[in-house]
Design a protein around this nucleic acid. Sequence first.
DNA 1: TCAATATATATCAAATCCGACATACTCAAC
DNA 2: GTTGAGTATGTCGGATTTGATATATATTGA
Lengths: 103, 103
Amino acid sequence: MMDVQKQKKLEAAGWKIGNAEDFLELDQVESSFIALKIALSQHLKTRRQSLRLTQKEFAGMIHSSQSRVAKMEAGDPGVSLDLLVKSLLTLKTSKEDIEKILP
Amino acid sequence: MMDVQKQKKLEAAGWKIGNAEDFLELDQVESSFIALKIALSQHLKTRRQSLRLTQKEFAGMIHSSQSRVAKMEAGDPGVSLDLLVKSLLTLKTSKEDIEKILP
DNA sequence: TCAATATATATCAAATCCGACATACTCAAC
DNA sequence: GTTGAGTATGTCGGATTTGATATATATTGA
Protein backbone atom coordinates (compact mmCIF):
# COMPACT_ATOMS: atom_id res chain seq x y z
CA MET A 1 0.00 0.00 0.00
CA MET A 2 0.93 3.63 -0.59
CA ASP A 3 3.20 2.96 -3.55
CA VAL A 4 4.92 5.68 -5.52
CA GLN A 5 2.22 5.80 -8.19
CA LYS A 6 -0.47 6.40 -5.61
CA GLN A 7 1.55 9.16 -3.98
CA LYS A 8 1.85 10.90 -7.33
CA LYS A 9 -1.88 10.66 -7.90
CA LEU A 10 -2.66 12.16 -4.52
CA GLU A 11 -0.05 14.88 -4.95
CA ALA A 12 -1.60 15.77 -8.29
CA ALA A 13 -4.88 16.15 -6.44
CA GLY A 14 -3.28 18.61 -4.04
CA TRP A 15 -2.32 16.29 -1.22
CA LYS A 16 1.03 16.53 0.49
CA ILE A 17 2.06 13.03 1.40
CA GLY A 18 3.71 12.42 4.72
CA ASN A 19 4.45 15.97 5.74
CA ALA A 20 1.11 17.71 6.24
CA GLU A 21 -1.06 17.02 9.26
CA ASP A 22 -4.38 15.79 8.00
CA PHE A 23 -6.30 17.84 10.52
CA LEU A 24 -5.18 20.91 8.60
CA GLU A 25 -6.74 19.44 5.50
CA LEU A 26 -9.84 18.63 7.50
CA ASP A 27 -10.06 22.25 8.57
CA GLN A 28 -9.81 23.24 4.92
CA VAL A 29 -12.65 20.90 4.01
CA GLU A 30 -14.69 22.05 6.98
CA SER A 31 -14.31 25.74 6.17
CA SER A 32 -15.12 25.19 2.50
CA PHE A 33 -18.15 23.25 3.56
CA ILE A 34 -19.32 26.01 5.88
CA ALA A 35 -18.78 28.60 3.17
CA LEU A 36 -20.92 26.53 0.84
CA LYS A 37 -23.75 26.28 3.34
CA ILE A 38 -23.63 30.02 4.04
CA ALA A 39 -23.80 30.80 0.33
CA LEU A 40 -26.78 28.50 -0.14
CA SER A 41 -28.59 29.89 2.90
CA GLN A 42 -28.13 33.46 1.71
CA HIS A 43 -29.47 32.57 -1.70
CA LEU A 44 -32.40 30.81 -0.11
CA LYS A 45 -33.34 33.92 1.85
CA THR A 46 -33.02 36.14 -1.21
CA ARG A 47 -35.10 33.81 -3.34
CA ARG A 48 -37.84 33.41 -0.74
CA GLN A 49 -38.06 37.17 -0.36
CA SER A 50 -38.17 37.74 -4.10
CA LEU A 51 -41.16 35.40 -4.23
CA ARG A 52 -42.73 37.44 -1.40
CA LEU A 53 -43.19 34.37 0.77
CA THR A 54 -43.10 34.60 4.55
CA GLN A 55 -40.97 32.11 6.44
CA LYS A 56 -44.17 30.53 7.68
CA GLU A 57 -45.59 30.15 4.18
CA PHE A 58 -42.37 28.67 2.87
CA ALA A 59 -42.15 26.36 5.87
CA GLY A 60 -45.53 24.98 4.83
CA MET A 61 -44.22 24.32 1.32
CA ILE A 62 -41.38 22.17 2.63
CA HIS A 63 -43.47 20.68 5.47
CA SER A 64 -41.26 22.22 8.10
CA SER A 65 -41.61 25.06 10.59
CA GLN A 66 -41.01 28.80 10.61
CA SER A 67 -38.26 28.45 13.19
CA ARG A 68 -36.36 25.97 11.07
CA VAL A 69 -36.56 28.24 8.05
CA ALA A 70 -35.17 31.06 10.19
CA LYS A 71 -32.29 28.83 11.27
CA MET A 72 -31.61 27.83 7.68
CA GLU A 73 -31.41 31.42 6.56
CA ALA A 74 -29.28 32.37 9.56
CA GLY A 75 -26.69 29.77 8.58
CA ASP A 76 -27.25 27.85 11.78
CA PRO A 77 -24.67 25.03 11.96
CA GLY A 78 -27.38 22.62 13.08
CA VAL A 79 -29.04 22.67 9.68
CA SER A 80 -28.09 20.00 7.17
CA LEU A 81 -27.05 20.53 3.58
CA ASP A 82 -29.83 18.09 2.72
CA LEU A 83 -32.50 20.42 4.05
CA LEU A 84 -30.94 23.46 2.39
CA VAL A 85 -30.76 21.80 -1.01
CA LYS A 86 -34.27 20.37 -0.77
CA SER A 87 -35.44 23.88 0.06
CA LEU A 88 -33.72 25.35 -2.98
CA LEU A 89 -35.18 22.61 -5.17
CA THR A 90 -38.63 23.41 -3.81
CA LEU A 91 -38.17 27.00 -4.91
CA LYS A 92 -37.10 25.63 -8.29
CA THR A 93 -33.65 27.09 -8.13
CA SER A 94 -32.12 26.27 -11.50
CA LYS A 95 -28.87 24.46 -12.08
CA GLU A 96 -27.52 27.67 -13.55
CA ASP A 97 -28.46 29.54 -10.39
CA ILE A 98 -26.75 26.92 -8.25
CA GLU A 99 -23.61 27.18 -10.33
CA LYS A 100 -23.59 30.94 -9.79
CA ILE A 101 -24.02 30.40 -6.04
CA LEU A 102 -21.11 28.02 -5.57
CA PRO A 103 -18.30 29.84 -3.75
CA MET B 1 -52.15 36.59 2.53
CA MET B 2 -51.82 34.98 -0.90
CA ASP B 3 -52.56 38.11 -2.86
CA VAL B 4 -52.56 38.27 -6.63
CA GLN B 5 -49.02 39.56 -6.84
CA LYS B 6 -47.71 36.64 -4.81
CA GLN B 7 -49.59 34.17 -6.94
CA LYS B 8 -47.97 35.60 -10.03
CA LYS B 9 -44.52 35.32 -8.47
CA LEU B 10 -45.07 31.69 -7.57
CA GLU B 11 -46.53 30.89 -10.95
CA ALA B 12 -43.48 32.47 -12.57
CA ALA B 13 -41.39 30.11 -10.46
CA GLY B 14 -43.34 27.15 -11.81
CA TRP B 15 -45.95 26.74 -9.11
CA LYS B 16 -49.54 26.10 -9.92
CA ILE B 17 -51.64 27.90 -7.33
CA GLY B 18 -54.67 26.19 -5.94
CA ASN B 19 -54.99 23.33 -8.37
CA ALA B 20 -51.90 21.16 -7.91
CA GLU B 21 -51.54 18.82 -4.98
CA ASP B 22 -48.40 19.76 -3.16
CA PHE B 23 -47.40 16.15 -2.61
CA LEU B 24 -46.83 15.90 -6.33
CA GLU B 25 -44.39 18.78 -6.09
CA LEU B 26 -42.78 17.08 -3.11
CA ASP B 27 -42.25 13.95 -5.17
CA GLN B 28 -40.62 16.08 -7.84
CA VAL B 29 -38.27 17.60 -5.27
CA GLU B 30 -37.57 14.22 -3.73
CA SER B 31 -36.72 12.56 -7.03
CA SER B 32 -34.51 15.45 -8.10
CA PHE B 33 -32.78 15.23 -4.77
CA ILE B 34 -32.19 11.51 -5.13
CA ALA B 35 -30.88 11.99 -8.65
CA LEU B 36 -28.45 14.57 -7.32
CA LYS B 37 -27.15 12.24 -4.63
CA ILE B 38 -26.75 9.38 -7.09
CA ALA B 39 -24.77 11.60 -9.47
CA LEU B 40 -22.48 12.73 -6.66
CA SER B 41 -21.98 9.21 -5.36
CA GLN B 42 -21.06 7.93 -8.80
CA HIS B 43 -18.56 10.73 -9.25
CA LEU B 44 -17.12 10.01 -5.83
CA LYS B 45 -16.50 6.38 -6.75
CA THR B 46 -14.92 7.30 -10.07
CA ARG B 47 -12.67 9.87 -8.47
CA ARG B 48 -11.55 7.60 -5.65
CA GLN B 49 -10.72 4.89 -8.14
CA SER B 50 -8.80 7.26 -10.39
CA LEU B 51 -6.67 8.17 -7.37
CA ARG B 52 -6.15 4.45 -6.77
CA LEU B 53 -7.39 4.66 -3.22
CA THR B 54 -9.12 1.74 -1.55
CA GLN B 55 -12.38 2.40 0.30
CA LYS B 56 -10.50 1.75 3.52
CA GLU B 57 -7.79 4.28 2.70
CA PHE B 58 -10.31 6.91 1.71
CA ALA B 59 -12.35 6.19 4.83
CA GLY B 60 -9.25 7.07 6.84
CA MET B 61 -8.95 10.39 5.01
CA ILE B 62 -12.46 11.41 6.00
CA HIS B 63 -12.25 9.76 9.43
CA SER B 64 -15.00 7.34 8.59
CA SER B 65 -15.24 3.62 7.90
CA GLN B 66 -14.97 1.39 4.84
CA SER B 67 -18.58 0.32 5.16
CA ARG B 68 -19.81 3.90 5.11
CA VAL B 69 -17.76 4.65 2.01
CA ALA B 70 -19.28 1.59 0.35
CA LYS B 71 -22.74 2.86 1.26
CA MET B 72 -21.95 6.31 -0.07
CA GLU B 73 -20.84 4.91 -3.40
CA ALA B 74 -23.82 2.58 -3.58
CA GLY B 75 -26.19 5.53 -3.28
CA ASP B 76 -27.56 4.24 0.02
CA PRO B 77 -30.50 6.45 1.05
CA GLY B 78 -29.16 6.57 4.60
CA VAL B 79 -26.20 8.67 3.58
CA SER B 80 -26.50 12.43 3.87
CA LEU B 81 -25.66 14.99 1.23
CA ASP B 82 -23.42 16.55 3.85
CA LEU B 83 -21.19 13.49 3.98
CA LEU B 84 -21.12 13.14 0.21
CA VAL B 85 -20.10 16.76 -0.33
CA LYS B 86 -17.49 16.69 2.41
CA SER B 87 -16.07 13.58 0.75
CA LEU B 88 -15.87 15.28 -2.62
CA LEU B 89 -14.25 18.33 -1.03
CA THR B 90 -11.70 16.04 0.61
CA LEU B 91 -10.81 14.70 -2.81
CA LYS B 92 -10.55 18.31 -3.97
CA THR B 93 -13.28 18.01 -6.53
CA SER B 94 -13.27 21.36 -8.30
CA LYS B 95 -16.22 23.67 -8.71
CA GLU B 96 -16.03 23.02 -12.42
CA ASP B 97 -16.22 19.28 -11.81
CA ILE B 98 -19.23 19.73 -9.56
CA GLU B 99 -20.96 21.80 -12.21
CA LYS B 100 -20.39 19.02 -14.72
CA ILE B 101 -21.81 16.49 -12.26
CA LEU B 102 -25.07 18.30 -11.55
CA PRO B 103 -27.93 16.46 -13.26
C1' DT C 1 -48.11 54.92 19.73
C1' DC C 2 -49.86 50.70 19.04
C1' DA C 3 -51.37 46.46 17.23
C1' DA C 4 -50.51 43.05 13.88
C1' DT C 5 -47.34 40.57 11.30
C1' DA C 6 -42.77 38.68 10.53
C1' DT C 7 -38.53 36.94 12.14
C1' DA C 8 -35.22 35.25 15.68
C1' DT C 9 -33.94 32.19 19.52
C1' DA C 10 -34.34 28.34 22.90
C1' DT C 11 -35.82 23.83 24.06
C1' DC C 12 -37.35 19.05 23.42
C1' DA C 13 -38.66 14.28 22.11
C1' DA C 14 -38.60 11.66 17.90
C1' DA C 15 -36.48 10.57 13.65
C1' DT C 16 -32.38 10.18 11.08
C1' DC C 17 -27.47 9.60 10.33
C1' DC C 18 -23.15 8.43 12.16
C1' DG C 19 -18.75 5.37 12.86
C1' DA C 20 -17.73 0.96 14.15
C1' DC C 21 -17.87 -3.81 13.85
C1' DA C 22 -18.94 -8.38 12.08
C1' DT C 23 -19.45 -10.97 8.32
C1' DA C 24 -20.37 -12.24 3.47
C1' DC C 25 -19.34 -11.77 -1.27
C1' DT C 26 -16.02 -10.88 -5.50
C1' DC C 27 -12.13 -11.69 -7.90
C1' DA C 28 -7.19 -11.71 -9.03
C1' DA C 29 -2.80 -14.01 -8.35
C1' DC C 30 -0.73 -18.01 -7.34
C1' DG D 1 -9.13 -24.23 -5.41
C1' DT D 2 -6.85 -21.41 -1.82
C1' DT D 3 -5.50 -17.29 -0.21
C1' DG D 4 -5.85 -12.48 0.51
C1' DA D 5 -7.19 -7.87 -0.68
C1' DG D 6 -11.13 -5.17 -1.76
C1' DT D 7 -15.94 -4.37 -1.53
C1' DA D 8 -20.83 -5.10 0.01
C1' DT D 9 -24.37 -5.73 3.56
C1' DG D 10 -26.52 -5.87 8.17
C1' DT D 11 -26.72 -4.27 12.80
C1' DC D 12 -26.18 -1.30 16.76
C1' DG D 13 -25.61 2.40 20.37
C1' DG D 14 -24.52 7.11 20.26
C1' DA D 15 -24.58 11.56 18.02
C1' DT D 16 -26.90 14.85 15.17
C1' DT D 17 -30.89 16.82 12.83
C1' DT D 18 -35.69 17.09 12.75
C1' DG D 19 -40.49 19.48 13.24
C1' DA D 20 -42.94 21.40 16.79
C1' DT D 21 -43.73 24.65 20.34
C1' DA D 22 -43.10 28.62 23.18
C1' DT D 23 -41.55 32.98 23.53
C1' DA D 24 -38.75 37.12 22.57
C1' DT D 25 -37.57 40.54 19.38
C1' DA D 26 -37.95 43.24 15.09
C1' DT D 27 -40.72 45.37 11.43
C1' DT D 28 -44.63 47.21 9.32
C1' DG D 29 -48.74 50.03 8.68
C1' DA D 30 -52.48 52.87 10.62
